[in-house]
Design a binder for these strands. Structure first.
Lengths: 319, 319
DNA sequence: TTGAAAGCGCTAACAT
DNA sequence: ATGTTAGCGCTTTCAA
């Protein structure tokens, strides 16, 4: 049997008789034999896959991120993809399921804080865009900087009363965006008027509904600009605002976080902070490979970049 | 050791002494033990995952499709995701790699014809949107109907000279779209002017570049409407056409295939044929589960739906 | 009620 | 150069 193993993997350094080798190769091809990579990793103690947990697979943000991961791991590892069934946000159970795969490493993309709190590391792990005191590798997304960039941009345009459409307010990445933005606005003498999106689900309709619900409040507060926690919500805001007859950015500026590729194409093109999804994926995979090979954990930071487009403009003269 | 196995899986029908059971549970919790699901499936002969091969993970079409698959498989199986590194289209090697996973089943999303030709089934398999004479389960996407729907719509609007931006012309799903559309246009006495996109890569820039390159030809042919093989290409076409000063749909109608969620939001909203990505995923997973459980293969068809929006309008009076 | 032993598909060390 | 054996982490007989 060892001969078969050697031939299949081309690991016979000429050690196998040409005739035997030929017979084996014929059998392999006739039977259409596929070596079971898992059985292989069971014995070699080098699993052939890594698990990736993402809150959603519909949000193109995670598609970009996955593309980055795939690019780095190449054919060295295969990916076990874990996504919560309810789309958006996951509990510890799904992380545990991921850990039960025969994996060399694990990537957790923006885990909720409660999930992270009950997390215990069982293999090299990289946590993306979340915070923990544990000795685990992390890729920090500098969302505070993102909030500052957006805040400064709006303040420079003259906006002082800013509406905010929050999302999953208990998740650090979102509360940081809101707070960093609010700090800049308040420092300029303005105010941030927060209106949380109620659902865990992130789609355009959520943005539309949230805008309908919150606009009366925002209007009463003299809001001239609205920021959404994610581009997808901003799409809904713009859609509904335009349906209600407001022109963007003349009547209302709209901006958000993420910069998925379509944000440059909606009308008007959306001002947003590029959260570098692809870069995040690249770094995560690099750090994970490193953690697997050298058994070290590390933390690195990715800085977002403001993309100014047509959806934000100077505050109109007069309230 | 068998006691451990029984306790961990809650399969001891009261057969294990309470004390032993407690000791085992304590050890499990202290060690943070994770049973290796692969080792389990190695012996039980019931693999816990299925492999899914998609040409790209950035195209939201496949995100929607995956969401559908995930929804059906629930926690019964986990997903091994395979994506070619160069984004877009894959060879037999990646399929073979997928088959080497310890899997209960395999889903191949829009495989290229050449890949399909050298495919040999090694486990329950579902092929999405591609054609083969093999006895393999398939989900057929009725792209011929899609082409007819779009063709009829344009003909009714008065268009007779239609430009077409093709993609991967050697792939059946794309050649069928083109031919079905062309048949309707020609039947109405018109002509389809084809211009293949050269790259395998699908992004907005490809659409822009292709439009710049092909517009002189199309203009010379008196084209009043352009259809792209995929929404993403249409975004590029609209972007560049508008930059060149054309208004859509007054000067030029634009339409395409896919209907990813953002197509309703671009400006003008894009007329496109909904290729039912999510439904495709649901059906694929259902058929696969069936193939795994009952060892039967089946074929089912999903019908696309035309979504008429603002990007198409009546042909101008004149030339 | 519990433990010992065989075996899932493979690889690596060893014996022939 | 080739065959035999042990063992990876688990489950499932089967014996104690």
């Amino acid at each position: 049997m060892s001969a078969v193993s050697l031939v299949v993997r081309n690991r016979d350094g000429g050690r196998i008789n040409g005739d035997l080798k030929a017979r084996i190769q014929k059998a392999v091809s006739d039977l259409d034999y596929r070596p079971n990579s898992f059985a292989r990793s069971l014995v070699s103690q080098l699993p052939s896959s890594i698990s990736v947990v993402v809150p959603s697979i519909r949000n193109p943000f995670f598609g970009e991120m996955l593309e980055g991961i795939l690019q780095v791991i190449g054919t060295r590892f295969t990916i076990q993809l874990h996504v919560p069934s309810e789309d958006m946000d996951y509990g510890i159970d799904i992380v545990r399921a991921a850990q039960e795969d025969n994996i060399a490493g694990l990537i957790l993309a923006t885990p909720p804080q409660t999930t992270l709190d009950s997390f215990r590391q069982t293999c090299p792990t990289v946590i993306l865009d979340a915070y923990t005191a544990m000795d685990v590798s992390r890729i920090e997304l500098n969302v505070v900087l993102a909030g500052h960039q957006l805040g400064r941009h709006l303040v420079e345009l003259g906006h002082r009363s800013v509406g905010y459409l929050d999302f999953l307010p208990d998740k650090a990445t979102f509360s940081c965006r809101r707070e960093a933005l609010g700090a800049v606005v308040r420092q300029a003498g303005g105010a941030l008027h927060n209106a949380p999106a109620p659902a865990e689900y992130l789609d355009i309709e959520q943005g539309e509904a949230a805008f309908s619900r919150s606009w009366p409040l925002w209007e009463a507060a003299g809001v001239t600009a609205i920021v959404a926690a994610d581009d997808i919500l901003a799409y809904g805001i713009m859609k509904r605002a335009q349906e209600m007859g407001m022109t963007i950015p003349d009547r209302l500026s709209v901006a958000s976080f993420n910069d998925i590729p379509f944000s440059a194409l909606v009308s008007p093109a959306l001002t947003t902070v590029d959260l570098r999804a692809h870069e995040l994926g690249l770094q995560a995979a690099r750090v994970l490979l490193d953690a697997i090979a050298r058994e070290v954990s590390s933390v690195c930071t990715v800085d977002p970049e403001l993309r100014v487009r047509r959806s934000t403009g100077s505050r109109r003269a007069g309230p």
